[in-house]
């Protein structure tokens, strides 16, 4: 059982993750198309601004301030900070964890990352993640606008994300039977990998693709594609 989920099952879930991600990203590019550049006559535009100097700078400080004030950070600063911290933590913790690096050094001969986190720091990160997920659950229950669109599926997704971190914490501190918890830990990570491209967790790709490719008020980069 342990050998199976550690060996073939891990590879299968990893393959599903890779191919599913490729499918989603290709699907994104197939469903969007490049917007043709619109060539307008410059003189009429300059004339209509009634001789005002045309803004030559890329973006002025005032514009950036305005954008931030009327973006999510301005509207809901607390939630913005929480999500930013949460996403940074779940992205760096698995790669910088000392134990993961040690396992990979044994398996493949080289570690995942050149440096690792001390044990108490990784504990703090784990607690931050669990606290953030707890906040998300509370938010789903108590904030009216979030509750109105929350379904059971949303709690299930939160559970899928929380499970690897909770089991990992139990594993590190040797609470309960080591072997059982290890099985649960690997299983939960595999479940996460399999469901990632096909559930709403696929916002992992779409967030980045949207920000850089879709024509929008808030797009970074050139943003020249439309749905």
């Amino acid at each position: 059982m342990y050998e199976f989920i550690r060996g073939p099952m891990a590879w299968v879930s990893f393959l599903i993750f890779i191919s599913g991600s490729a499918y989603q990203i290709i699907g994104f590019f197939r469903n969007t198309s490049k917007q043709e550049e619109f060539a307008f006559s410059k003189p009429s535009y300059v004339q209509h601004t009634r001789g005002q100097p045309v803004n030559k700078k890329l973006l002025s400080f005032k514009d950036i301030k305005y954008s931030i004030k009327y973006s999510m950070i301005g509207f809901d600063p607390f939630f913005s900070v929480i999500t930013i911290i949460f996403h940074i933590c779940i992205l760096i913790l698995p790669f910088l964890l000392y134990e993961h690096n040690a396992i990979f050094e044994i398996l493949w001969g080289f570690p995942l990352s050149p440096f690792t986190l001390p044990e108490n720091v990784s504990d703090i990160l784990t607690f931050t993640i669990i606290a953030c997920i707890f906040y998300f659950i509370l938010r789903r229950i108590f904030i009216r606008r979030v509750r109105s669109i929350t379904t059971f599926y949303d709690y299930y997704i939160l559970f899928i994300v929380a499970a690897p971190f909770i089991t990992g914490f139990l594993l590190l501190h040797n609470i309960f039977s080591y072997k059982t918890i290890a099985i649960f830990h690997i299983l939960s990570v595999e479940l996460l990998f399999i469901s990632l491209p096909f559930s709403k967790l696929s916002h992992m790709f779409f967030f980045i693709l949207n920000r850089f490719y879709i024509r929008n008020e808030f797009s970074f980069g050139k943003g020249d594609r439309i749905w």
């Binding site: 999510m72 669109i149 379904t151």
Partner: peptide, 18 residues
């Protein structure tokens, strides 16, 4: 295809409200 994709990637985050 497009609509199912939209409905699937909606994270129910409610950030669109404002």
């Amino acid at each position: 295809k497009r609509m199912k994709m939209y409905l699937r990637i909606c994270a129910h985050c409610s950030l669109c409200a404002e």
